[in-house]
Simulated scan of single mutants.
Amino acid sequence: MTKSLFPLPEPLIIPVQGEESGYPVGRIFCVGRNYAAHAAEMGVEVDREAPFYFTKSSANAVLSGTSCPYPPGTENFHYEMELALAIGAPVFRATPAEANAAIYGYGCALDMTRRDLQIRERKKQRPWDLGKDLEQGTVFAPLTKASDWGPVTDQRIWLTLDGDTKQDATLTELIWSVEEIICHLSGFYHLRPGDLILTGTPAGVGPVLAGQHMQGGITGLAPISLHLSDAA
Protein backbone atom coordinates (compact mmCIF):
# COMPACT_ATOMS: atom_id res chain seq x y z
CA MET A 1 0.00 0.00 0.00
CA THR A 2 1.27 3.47 -0.88
CA LYS A 3 2.10 5.53 2.20
CA SER A 4 0.58 8.95 2.68
CA LEU A 5 2.83 11.97 2.21
CA PHE A 6 1.21 13.73 5.15
CA PRO A 7 -1.50 13.08 7.75
CA LEU A 8 -5.03 14.36 7.24
CA PRO A 9 -7.11 15.80 10.10
CA GLU A 10 -9.17 13.33 12.06
CA PRO A 11 -12.92 13.53 11.33
CA LEU A 12 -15.02 15.74 13.57
CA ILE A 13 -16.84 13.66 16.18
CA ILE A 14 -20.28 14.94 17.22
CA PRO A 15 -21.27 14.00 20.79
CA VAL A 16 -24.42 11.92 21.14
CA GLN A 17 -26.73 12.45 24.10
CA GLY A 18 -26.46 9.53 26.53
CA GLU A 19 -23.63 7.81 24.64
CA GLU A 20 -19.90 7.57 25.36
CA SER A 21 -19.03 7.31 21.68
CA GLY A 22 -19.71 10.06 19.16
CA TYR A 23 -20.81 10.30 15.56
CA PRO A 24 -17.98 10.87 13.01
CA VAL A 25 -18.77 13.41 10.31
CA GLY A 26 -18.45 12.12 6.76
CA ARG A 27 -20.35 13.84 3.96
CA ILE A 28 -22.59 16.85 4.53
CA PHE A 29 -25.58 17.36 2.22
CA CYS A 30 -27.75 20.47 2.49
CA VAL A 31 -31.28 20.93 1.18
CA GLY A 32 -31.92 24.29 -0.44
CA ARG A 33 -35.13 26.33 -0.15
CA ASN A 34 -37.05 23.88 2.01
CA TYR A 35 -39.16 26.56 3.73
CA ALA A 36 -41.42 28.63 1.50
CA ALA A 37 -41.09 31.78 3.61
CA HIS A 38 -37.30 31.65 3.43
CA ALA A 39 -37.37 31.20 -0.35
CA ALA A 40 -39.65 34.24 -0.56
CA GLU A 41 -37.35 36.40 1.54
CA MET A 42 -34.48 35.41 -0.76
CA GLY A 43 -36.50 36.46 -3.80
CA VAL A 44 -36.73 33.00 -5.33
CA GLU A 45 -39.44 30.42 -5.86
CA VAL A 46 -39.60 26.93 -4.43
CA ASP A 47 -39.16 24.06 -6.88
CA ARG A 48 -41.90 21.70 -5.72
CA GLU A 49 -41.03 18.99 -8.25
CA ALA A 50 -38.05 17.76 -6.24
CA PRO A 51 -35.64 18.94 -3.55
CA PHE A 52 -32.21 20.24 -4.55
CA TYR A 53 -28.90 20.10 -2.70
CA PHE A 54 -25.48 21.57 -2.18
CA THR A 55 -22.64 20.06 -0.18
CA LYS A 56 -20.29 21.32 2.52
CA SER A 57 -16.89 19.88 3.45
CA SER A 58 -16.61 17.86 6.64
CA ALA A 59 -13.19 19.45 7.21
CA ASN A 60 -14.96 22.80 7.63
CA ALA A 61 -17.35 21.59 10.35
CA VAL A 62 -17.06 22.55 14.03
CA LEU A 63 -18.96 21.86 17.25
CA SER A 64 -21.41 24.07 19.08
CA GLY A 65 -19.84 26.47 21.56
CA THR A 66 -17.00 27.40 19.24
CA SER A 67 -15.75 30.94 18.72
CA CYS A 68 -15.08 31.47 15.00
CA PRO A 69 -13.45 34.45 13.29
CA TYR A 70 -15.39 36.56 10.82
CA PRO A 71 -14.54 34.92 7.48
CA PRO A 72 -12.55 36.56 4.70
CA GLY A 73 -14.01 37.76 1.42
CA THR A 74 -17.48 38.79 2.64
CA GLU A 75 -19.31 41.84 3.90
CA ASN A 76 -22.64 40.06 4.42
CA PHE A 77 -22.21 36.97 6.61
CA HIS A 78 -25.48 35.21 7.50
CA TYR A 79 -26.72 32.64 10.02
CA GLU A 80 -29.08 29.81 9.01
CA MET A 81 -30.59 27.60 11.72
CA GLU A 82 -31.39 24.04 10.60
CA LEU A 83 -32.47 20.56 11.65
CA ALA A 84 -29.73 18.04 10.85
CA LEU A 85 -30.39 14.34 10.46
CA ALA A 86 -27.65 11.74 10.80
CA ILE A 87 -27.68 8.54 8.74
CA GLY A 88 -26.98 5.40 10.73
CA ALA A 89 -27.31 2.59 8.17
CA PRO A 90 -26.52 2.12 4.47
CA VAL A 91 -29.48 3.01 2.28
CA PHE A 92 -29.93 3.25 -1.48
CA ARG A 93 -33.14 3.99 -3.39
CA ALA A 94 -34.97 3.98 -0.11
CA THR A 95 -38.65 3.45 0.50
CA PRO A 96 -40.20 5.70 3.19
CA ALA A 97 -39.93 2.87 5.73
CA GLU A 98 -36.27 2.27 4.84
CA ALA A 99 -35.60 6.00 5.03
CA ASN A 100 -36.98 6.20 8.56
CA ALA A 101 -35.05 3.11 9.63
CA ALA A 102 -31.79 4.61 8.32
CA ILE A 103 -31.97 7.70 10.57
CA TYR A 104 -29.57 7.43 13.50
CA GLY A 105 -30.36 10.74 15.11
CA TYR A 106 -31.18 14.42 14.90
CA GLY A 107 -29.48 17.62 15.96
CA CYS A 108 -29.35 21.38 15.65
CA ALA A 109 -27.01 22.83 13.03
CA LEU A 110 -25.92 26.20 11.66
CA ASP A 111 -25.27 26.66 7.95
CA MET A 112 -23.19 29.84 7.96
CA THR A 113 -23.23 31.63 4.62
CA ARG A 114 -21.27 34.34 2.81
CA ARG A 115 -24.54 35.68 1.39
CA ASP A 116 -23.02 38.28 -0.90
CA LEU A 117 -20.85 35.64 -2.56
CA GLN A 118 -23.71 33.14 -2.80
CA ILE A 119 -25.98 35.68 -4.51
CA ARG A 120 -23.20 36.88 -6.80
CA GLU A 121 -22.47 33.35 -8.00
CA ARG A 122 -26.16 32.48 -8.26
CA LYS A 123 -26.77 35.42 -10.58
CA LYS A 124 -23.95 34.16 -12.81
CA GLN A 125 -25.41 30.61 -12.69
CA ARG A 126 -22.24 29.34 -11.03
CA PRO A 127 -21.78 27.00 -8.03
CA TRP A 128 -22.29 28.41 -4.54
CA ASP A 129 -19.11 26.95 -3.01
CA LEU A 130 -17.51 30.27 -2.05
CA GLY A 131 -20.72 31.35 -0.36
CA LYS A 132 -21.50 28.10 1.42
CA ASP A 133 -18.45 25.91 1.96
CA LEU A 134 -16.31 28.10 4.19
CA GLU A 135 -13.91 27.22 7.00
CA GLN A 136 -15.76 26.70 10.30
CA GLY A 137 -18.95 27.35 8.38
CA THR A 138 -21.00 24.35 9.50
CA VAL A 139 -21.77 24.01 13.20
CA PHE A 140 -23.25 20.95 14.93
CA ALA A 141 -24.80 20.57 18.36
CA PRO A 142 -24.82 17.17 20.13
CA LEU A 143 -27.09 14.63 18.46
CA THR A 144 -30.12 12.94 19.97
CA LYS A 145 -30.85 9.37 18.85
CA ALA A 146 -33.96 8.99 16.71
CA SER A 147 -35.38 6.50 19.19
CA ASP A 148 -35.25 9.23 21.86
CA TRP A 149 -36.81 12.00 19.76
CA GLY A 150 -39.35 12.36 17.07
CA PRO A 151 -41.14 11.85 14.85
CA VAL A 152 -40.65 15.20 13.15
CA THR A 153 -43.95 17.04 13.56
CA ASP A 154 -44.59 20.54 14.89
CA GLN A 155 -41.41 21.04 16.93
CA ARG A 156 -40.36 24.68 17.20
CA ILE A 157 -37.10 25.78 15.53
CA TRP A 158 -35.59 29.13 16.44
CA LEU A 159 -32.45 31.28 16.56
CA THR A 160 -31.53 34.34 18.61
CA LEU A 161 -28.80 36.88 17.90
CA ASP A 162 -27.51 38.59 21.05
CA GLY A 163 -30.77 37.56 22.71
CA ASP A 164 -33.10 38.90 19.99
CA THR A 165 -35.23 36.27 18.23
CA LYS A 166 -34.51 36.26 14.50
CA GLN A 167 -35.84 32.90 13.28
CA ASP A 168 -38.93 31.27 14.76
CA ALA A 169 -40.91 28.56 12.96
CA THR A 170 -42.04 24.95 13.28
CA LEU A 171 -40.88 21.84 11.47
CA THR A 172 -44.35 21.47 9.94
CA GLU A 173 -43.20 24.20 7.54
CA LEU A 174 -40.67 21.88 5.90
CA ILE A 175 -41.66 21.51 2.25
CA TRP A 176 -39.87 18.16 1.89
CA SER A 177 -40.10 15.83 4.90
CA VAL A 178 -37.07 13.97 6.22
CA GLU A 179 -38.39 10.73 4.68
CA GLU A 180 -38.91 12.38 1.29
CA ILE A 181 -35.43 13.89 1.40
CA ILE A 182 -33.75 10.55 2.16
CA CYS A 183 -35.82 8.73 -0.47
CA HIS A 184 -34.90 11.29 -3.10
CA LEU A 185 -31.22 11.77 -2.20
CA SER A 186 -30.64 8.02 -1.92
CA GLY A 187 -31.65 7.74 -5.55
CA PHE A 188 -28.40 9.51 -6.43
CA TYR A 189 -26.04 8.40 -3.64
CA HIS A 190 -25.44 5.28 -1.61
CA LEU A 191 -26.05 6.95 1.74
CA ARG A 192 -24.05 5.54 4.64
CA PRO A 193 -23.27 6.10 8.33
CA GLY A 194 -21.43 9.39 8.74
CA ASP A 195 -23.63 11.19 6.21
CA LEU A 196 -25.45 14.23 7.60
CA ILE A 197 -28.29 16.08 5.90
CA LEU A 198 -29.16 19.67 6.79
CA THR A 199 -32.85 20.03 5.99
CA GLY A 200 -33.10 23.77 5.26
CA THR A 201 -33.62 27.00 7.16
CA PRO A 202 -36.79 28.92 7.99
CA ALA A 203 -37.36 32.61 7.30
CA GLY A 204 -35.53 35.28 9.26
CA VAL A 205 -31.96 34.78 8.09
CA GLY A 206 -29.74 37.82 8.37
CA PRO A 207 -26.27 39.23 8.94
CA VAL A 208 -24.06 38.62 11.94
CA LEU A 209 -21.14 40.83 12.92
CA ALA A 210 -17.92 40.20 14.81
CA GLY A 211 -18.60 40.19 18.54
CA GLN A 212 -22.14 38.85 18.21
CA HIS A 213 -23.44 35.58 19.67
CA MET A 214 -25.95 33.17 18.14
CA GLN A 215 -28.04 30.64 20.04
CA GLY A 216 -30.53 28.27 18.49
CA GLY A 217 -32.73 25.37 19.35
CA ILE A 218 -35.28 22.81 18.27
CA THR A 219 -37.79 21.46 20.76
CA GLY A 220 -36.37 18.40 22.51
CA LEU A 221 -32.85 18.62 21.02
CA ALA A 222 -29.60 19.91 22.48
CA PRO A 223 -29.24 23.67 21.80
CA ILE A 224 -26.55 25.20 19.61
CA SER A 225 -24.39 28.30 20.00
CA LEU A 226 -21.70 30.14 18.08
CA HIS A 227 -19.72 33.28 18.88
CA LEU A 228 -18.28 35.33 16.04
CA SER A 229 -14.93 36.91 16.81
CA ASP A 230 -12.91 39.48 14.87
CA ALA A 231 -11.50 38.56 11.48
CA ALA A 232 -8.29 36.57 11.68
Rank of each mutant, 00 (worst) to 15 (best):
D129P: 01
R115D: 01
L134E: 05
Q118D: 12
G137R: 10
D116R: 14
R122V: 00
D116G: 04
M112K: 09
I103M: 04
A109V: 09
G131E: 07
D129G: 00
G131M: 13
L130W: 08
Y106W: 09
L110K: 11
R126W: 08
G137W: 10
L134D: 04
K124P: 01
P127D: 02
V139T: 13
Y104Q: 05
L110Q: 04
M112Y: 12
K132L: 06
K124N: 08
P127W: 07
T138D: 01
T138G: 00
Y106F: 15
K124M: 11
R114H: 12
G105F: 02
R120M: 11
D133E: 05
R114K: 15
G131I: 05
L134S: 13
V139M: 09
L110W: 05
R126M: 15
E121N: 15
Q136N: 15
D129A: 09
D111N: 10
V139D: 12
M112Q: 08
R122N: 08
M112T: 09
L117A: 07
W128C: 05
V139L: 11
R115T: 06
W128L: 08
E121K: 07
A109C: 14
D111R: 07
M112W: 07
M112A: 05
L134R: 12
G137D: 07
G105W: 03
L110S: 04
I103W: 00
Y104I: 00
D111K: 06
I103V: 15
G107K: 00
M112P: 13
G137T: 03
L130F: 13
C108G: 07
E135H: 12
D129Q: 08
Y106H: 10
D116M: 11
C108W: 05
L134K: 07
R114C: 15
W128T: 02
L134G: 14
C108L: 08
T138N: 12
G131K: 03
D129I: 10
R122C: 02
C108M: 09
A109L: 14
Q118M: 15
T138E: 04
L117P: 01
I119S: 04
I103P: 00
Q118V: 10
G107M: 13
T138A: 14
K123A: 14
Q125A: 15
D133W: 11
E121T: 00
Y104H: 09
L110D: 06
I119H: 03
I119D: 10
D129H: 03
D111M: 14
T113M: 08
I103Q: 00
D129K: 03
I119C: 00
R122G: 13
R122P: 01
R122Q: 15
R115I: 08
D129V: 13
G107Q: 04
D111T: 02
I103L: 02
R114E: 12
K132D: 02
P127M: 04
L134P: 09
D129R: 05
R115G: 09
Y104K: 06
L134A: 11
R115A: 07
E121G: 00
